[in-house]
Structures are given as structure tokens and as C-alpha cells.
């Protein structure tokens, strides 16, 4: 089977008058059709930028991109004009943290979904509206028929999120990009949306790249996880591999500093320091300054990717020392 998404050596830089930010520094990622990959990282790790690059949403004037990106056989870097518009929405579509950004406040939900359908599929008005209604039903919006004529601001947060998912999936994309879609939601609503996404993903058989900073959320939806730090994927593997047997010191530290379960009163094993300034790409491992296993070579030379298991890889020179410290 050929991968649905293949990203090779993606690099993204932003220039402003004052400084340059190296947001993504060589990301490789591939995704099989129907697979869900969770892209996990903290703010500034480059996870959202990677996602936006896939949809070519980054402001062109200030952005330098290099590398190769292919989705469903299309060279994403080469797309332009009408090909790009066709690609967005019908091949790849995206949901955001803030649904108000995806909707135009002056049109009803139904109009906006129908409009997307007509643009991509040459459907007539009635058929497009029927599809909009069907989509609202699919995302389990109660009394969908009435909601079709609702404006975005008339809906609650959870309903808007559902409507945005309906909009994103209306043209049956092969790939769904999810950028922290549940971060702004309440706990009881978040789990509903996660379950809905999981269900729709199976039903539509689409690939999903799910960006989040919340490990728990990532585990709920993903088959595989990739952890990003300073614009690179430092470890990837199945959700099980990463939760049970994380190898790289950064995901390990992240897990240790995430409070969960009964660990009251115990001191948290926090990762010291703060993420690096991305004004320049570090020569070596970007995590080295915060890593207690780092030696001189970690700082000076970029580590190779080490294969731990089938599909489980980490970018670290000191995996043996890390593993030994866990046993000892």
C-alpha cells in the first residue's frame, strides 16, 4: 500500500524584520490511508506549522519552505491556483481549535457547508443542502434540520465544533488535519468530540493527523504518536510504545511531569529549563541543554535516528544511558 501522506525533510522558516524563526527543521512523516497519527508537542515545537504547511496555509511572503510533501500522489509544494483550491477541502481538510475562525459569521451553517459541497463537486443547490443536512446528522447535532439555518454564533461551543467537523468532512477528504480541536472545550464535551472523530474516521476511512499538546487526548484518538521538539520529531511509535516504553528523554520527561492518577504529594520530575529560542537551528540535539544525559557530542552533532522496534524510532545518541537509568 502506498502512503497517503509522505513528508520528507520539511523545513519551514519565518522571517520578520527583526528576526528569523526556524519553526520546522527537517520533519519526516508518512501516513497510511485510514491511519491516525497524533503529533504531540508543546507550544513552539512546530506541530501546528507542519500541519499548516501540509495545507499550504502559511503566509507565503514571510515563509521559506523546503523539502517534499506528497498527499494522495499530489506534490503539495508544486500546487498553485485552482489546483490548490481543489486540493484544499476535497483531498485535505482541516479543523481548528477555534471553530469561529472556520465559519463566516454572516452565513448560516447550512449555507456554508452546501457552498463547500457545490464548489468541489458541482452539485446543485438541493443536493448540496441535502448533503449539508446529512453531515449535520452524521456529527450528531440534535434537530439538524433546524440547525441548518442557524448562524455560527447561535450555537454552543461543542455544537460549533461538530458543525466545523461536518464542514471539513462534507467533501469526503482523504486526509483530515486536526489542530487542537478539543483544547478549548470542556472536559465532558471534549470526550464527546474525540469519540465522534474516532467514529467518523473509521466510517470515512480517512487518514488523520491530530495535533495536540495533551498526551491523554492523543492517546484517545491515535494509532501512532510522533513527539515533536524544536521543529523535529524526536520519537515516534505506536501509542503503546510511547506511553509504556518511551525511549527519548524528552517524551519520558513529558510523561513524568504530566500529573495523572494517584501521585499526590510526590514531587514532580519536571524537565528543567524552557524550550529553545528558534532564532537559529542548533548544531546538535535541540533538547541537549535540558537533558541530564547529554554529553559534549550531543550538543555539537545531530543524533542519528535509532530504530528501537518495528515502527518505534527515537533520535537520541544516549538511549542506552537513558534505559539504564530507568532500570537502576
Amino acid at each position: 500500500m502506498t502512503p497517503l501522506v509522505r513528508i520528507e525533510d520539511l523545513r519551514v522558516r519565518f522571517r520578520t524584520a527583526e528576526r528569523t524563526v526556524h519553526a520546522v527543521n527537517g520533519v519526516d512523516l508518512s501516513l497510511m490511508p485510514g491511519e491516525v497519527v497524533g503529533l504531540l508537542g508543546e507550544s513552539g515545537s512546530g506541530k501546528s506549522v507542519t500541519l499548516k504547511a501540509l495545507l499550504r496555509l502559511l503566509p507565503e511572503a514571510r515563509t521559506t519552505m523546503s523539502g517534499r510533501m506528497a498527499v494522495a500522489g499530489q506534490d503539495v509544494m508544486a500546487l498553485g491556483g485552482s489546483a490548490l483550491r481543489a486540493y484544499r477541502g476535497s483531498v485535505v481538510s482541516m479543523i481548528f481549535q477555534e471553530p469561529m475562525l472556520a465559519f463566516d459569521p454572516v452565513f448560516t451553517i447550512g449555507e456554508q457547508i452546501a457552498e463547500a459541497v457545490r464548489r468541489h463537486e458541482n452539485a446543485d443547490r438541493t443536493a448540496a443542502r441535502a448533503r449539508a443536512l446529512e453531515m449535520l446528522d452524521r456529527v450528531r447535532i440534535p434537530s439538524a434540520k433546524r440547525r441548518l439555518d442557524a448562524y455560527p454564533h447561535e450555537m454552543s461551543g461543542g455544537m460549533r465544533q461538530r458543525a466545523m467537523i461536518a464542514l471539513a468532512l462534507a467533501c469526503r477528504p482523504k486526509l483530515l488535519l486536526a489542530d487542537e480541536p478539543t483544547t478549548a472545550l470542556d472536559a465532558t464535551v471534549q470526550i464527546q468530540i474525540l469519540l465522534l472523530l474516532r467514529e467518523l474516521q473509521k466510517e470515512f476511512g480517512m487518514g488523520v493527523i491530530f495535533v495536540t499538546h495533551d498526551i491523554g487526548v492523543a492517546v484517545e484518538v491515535s494509532d501512532r504518536l510522533a513527539v515533536m521538539y524544536a521543529g523535529r520529531i524526536v520519537e515516534r511509535g505506536s501509542a503503546r510504545d510511547l506511553i509504556r516504553a518511551a525511549a527519548h528523554p524528552y517524551p519520558r520527561g513529558l510523561l513524568a511531569s504530566t500529573v495523572h492518577g494517584a501521585m499526590r504529594g510526590r514531587r514532580l520530575d519536571a524537565i528543567p529549563g524552557a524550550p529553545p529560542d528558534l532564532a537559529k537551528v542548533p548544531d546538535g540535539c535541540a533538547f541537549a541543554p535540558r537533558c541530564r544525559f547529554a554529553d559534549a557530542e550531543c550538543v555539537s552533532r545531530r543524533p542519528d535516528i535509532v530504530r528501537i522496534d518495528a515502527g518505534h524510532e527515537a533520535e537520541c545518541r544516549r538511549l542506552d544511558a537513558v534505559a539504564a537509568s530507568a532500570e537502576g
Binding site: 454552543s156 472536559a187 470526550i191 469519540l195 498526551i215 492517546v219 501509542a239 492518577g261
Partner: peptide, 27 residues
């Protein structure tokens, strides 16, 4: 109880299978 069972599980083998309550908090 609903709030607690809405927490993501952190266990890939025991993912949440059902939402504890439906709908949004009322206004």
C-alpha cells in the same frame, strides 16, 4: 462521576468507549 470519566484514559489499551454525558453545559 461524569466529569471524572470524561478524563482521557492515558492507556492505549483502555480507551474511553462511551461519553459519560451528552450535550454541552447549559447556559
Amino acid at each position: 462521576r461524569a466529569l471524572l470519566s470524561a478524563m482521557p484514559s492515558m492507556d492505549p489499551d483502555r480507551r474511553t468507549s462511551e461519553a459519560p454525558i451528552s450535550g454541552d453545559p447549559p447556559n
